[in-house]
Design a protein around this nucleic acid. Structure first.
Length: 561
RNA sequence: CGGGAAAUAGUUCAACUUGGUAGAGCACCUGGUUUGGGACCAGGGGGUUGCAGGUUCAAAUCCUGUUUUCCCGACCA
């Protein structure tokens, strides 16, 4: 591609409404442009990167034996009613009516359609296993699009679905996809971690996420400094701490005027937070519950929701609280109140702890488990840095990540809901075992940009770069330089190397800056010495900066691609 | 959905507090000088100040509403 007559532009100033590093650079380099919050146009350079990422994924999926298909983006809503997901997606779904008032939506995901597709083939156990996938746009009316391409409302996703006779066979299909994912992300040069995650609205038995490590990540990744444990914080198990053994003391009511927060209590009594118990009030589907956790912990709502087996937990308001006690937030505890008490595993290990007395201005000292009735006990807190790993005796540290891919063992959730069955050897009807596997294509692009960019602009690995090499002519009016450049351009093309020819009549500095902003991995500069057959080769990452003979340049570049 | 900020030329911003003909850098056009790291000089084009009301002799500026965008949170495969 020659730049002089191409649709290419760059922007010198920072973009006002793109705060993230990747979003700002992707827009400034003319790769994408925002049309609305979370809605982007892809310009030629951006589209090339996106396509390269798609092709890496496509190759790895095909290698793993999956077959590519394409589903509609426009989907009749009834199918989501059938799978009972219409309401769970709720306002995240873009909804519309056709001219006959039939309800449609723009597909937020495609499990249902893939089940429909698979049912065309699946009649018997002989018809499995197989895996089908597509690379297509999804639409989700996100509450808050942000960070450029990282959270958008229309986004390209590769989604694959495996169909097996049972969980054992499903496991094999699942592992194949995990391998394909590792290969894909390795080829893209992404620094990622695999972590356990919540299955969320997808449902199913197990979910793992592929998380690109970056500081602007929206997820907290829980890692162990000793073993390979990795988990999203939302599901990371906490090994309950054991506390020092001591004799149980007599329960004691103490006056604590104006003492509300855990911090206040600790200061007032000169004790560590771990000696206190925090009482949090939650509203579930139909009642108020008190959740008790150690004073230096944070509650994890996902875990609480699962423990209680309810669809939603919300923090209670002051009014909700009035229904169960006259005390206000800051003076709550498990004693003398008629609500269900849920305690964290760690609270069960505590002896003689401090908590609110359900009477404003008072706390209880020396509280023990025997002083109140426990409705349920479980792991309902967030793991902390420094905690002991749930799998070994190592210690936990955190990283932040962007979810670039995930894999789900769906099990039979969708096959049961939508009637996808097969006949086994004994002629019995059984539900199909499914897995589903997603990769956010543009999100990968943003993650790479985020991880690799420097102060000059984007830095693409060769595998996803819009062009592998650019030819920069110092003086486009110099016929000899242009002649050398044109020859080289033809040679690169002949060799099948993606080459960008910056033949614009611009000053050298402008061309250098533009190519650095764009992040092309290698630059061949054609300048004064070109007449003697001497060119310059510079890599965007700064590792190579050398003069080189015109005759060796192709060979040299080929070493890196 | 809660909290915060913002909207003025293609773009980044100024002018708003204290109402009085909207200005700069970059970008763009013309001419000239330049030509290896976002050149310089001279000249020039470009704005219903997001939108709708209101107050006023007079509104970018004050008031009300509304829309959009970003940030923090809630939410989120």
């Amino acid at each position: 591609m020659k730049l002089s007559n191409s649709f290419f532009y760059t922007i010198r100033d920072d973009i006002k409404d793109e705060d993230s590093l990747s979003g700002n650079l992707l827009v400034r380099s003319g790769m994408v442009k925002k049309e609305a919050s979370g809605v982007y146009m892809f310009m030629p350079m951006g589209l090339r990167v996106k396509r390269k990422i798609e092709n890496i994924i496509r190759e790895e999926m095909d290698k793993a034996g999956a077959n590519e298909v394409l589903m509609p983006a426009l989907i009749p809503s009834d199918i989501f009613h059938k799978s009972h997901r219409y309401d769970s997606f709720g306002s995240d779904m873009f909804k519309l009516d056709d001219r006959n008032d039939r309800e449609f939506c723009l597909g937020p995901t495609h499990e249902e359609l893939f089940v429909m597709a698979a049912s065309e083939k699946i009649k018997s156990y002989r018809d499995m296993p197989f895996n089908i996938y597509q690379i297509q746009d999804k639409f989700r009316d996100e509450a808050r699009p942000r960070f450029g391409l990282i959270r958008t409302r229309e986004f390209t996703m590769k989604d694959a679905y495996s169909f097996d006779i049972d969980s054992e066979a499903g496991e094999v299909s699942y592992q194949k996809m995990v391998e394909a994912y590792k290969n894909s992300f390795d080829r893209m040069g992404i620094d990622y971690r695999i972590v356990r995650a919540d299955t969320g609205v997808m449902g199913g038995d197990l979910s793992e996420e592929f998380q690109a490590v970056t500081d602007i990540g929206e997820d907290v990744l829980v890692m162990c400094d000793k073993c390979s444990f990795g988990s999203n914080i939302e599901v990371a198990q906490v090994k309950a701490r054991k506390f020092e053994k001591e004799e149980k003391q007599e329960l004691e009511l103490i006056e604590t005027k104006g003492v509300k927060s855990i911090e206040d209590v600790c200061n007032f009594l000169s004790i560590p937070a771990s000696k206190t118990v925090k009482t949090l009030v939650y509203k579930t589907d139909d009642e108020i519950i008190f959740a008790l956790i150690n004073g230096d912990r944070e509650l994890n709502e996902t875990k609480l929701r699962k423990l209680l087996n309810v669809s939603e937990v919300l923090m209670a308001s002051e009014e909700d609280l009035k229904m169960v006690t006259s005390a206000s937030f800051g003076s709550l505890g498990p004693i003398g109140v008629n609500v269900k008490i849920v305690i964290d595993n760690e609270v069960a290990n505590m002896i003689n702890f401090i908590c609110g007395a359900n009477k404003d201005g008072y706390h209880y000292k020396n509280v023990n488990l025997s002083d109140f009735e426990v409705y349920m006990q479980g792991d309902i807190v967030n793991i902390c840095e420094g905690d002991v790993c749930p799998c070994c005796d190592g210690h936990i540290y955190f990283k932040k990540g962007i979810e670039i891919g995930n894999t789900f063992k769906l099990g039979t959730k969708y096959s049961l809901a939508l009637g996808l069955n097969y006949l086994d050897k004994e002629n019995k009807l059984k539900p199909v075992y499914m897995g589903c596997y997603g990769i956010g294509v543009a999100r990968c692009m943003a993650a790479i940009a985020e991880q690799k960019a420097d102060e000059k602009g984007l830095v693409w690995p060769v595998s996803v770069a819009p062009f592998t090499v650019c030819i920069t002519v110092i003086n486009a009016k110099d016929e000899k330089q242009m002649c050398v450049a044109n020859d080289l351009y033809d040679e690169f093309n002949k060799e099948g190397i993606d080459v960008l020819f910056d033949d614009r009549d611009e000053r050298a500095g402008v061309k250098f800056k533009d190519m650095e902003l764009l992040g092309v991995p290698y630059r061949v500069t054609i300048g004064r010495k070109a007449i003697d057959g001497i060119l310059e080769l510079k890599s965007r990452d700064g590792k190579i900066d050398t003069e080189i003979s015109k005759d060796d340049i192709i060979k040299e570049i080929k070493k890196y691609v």
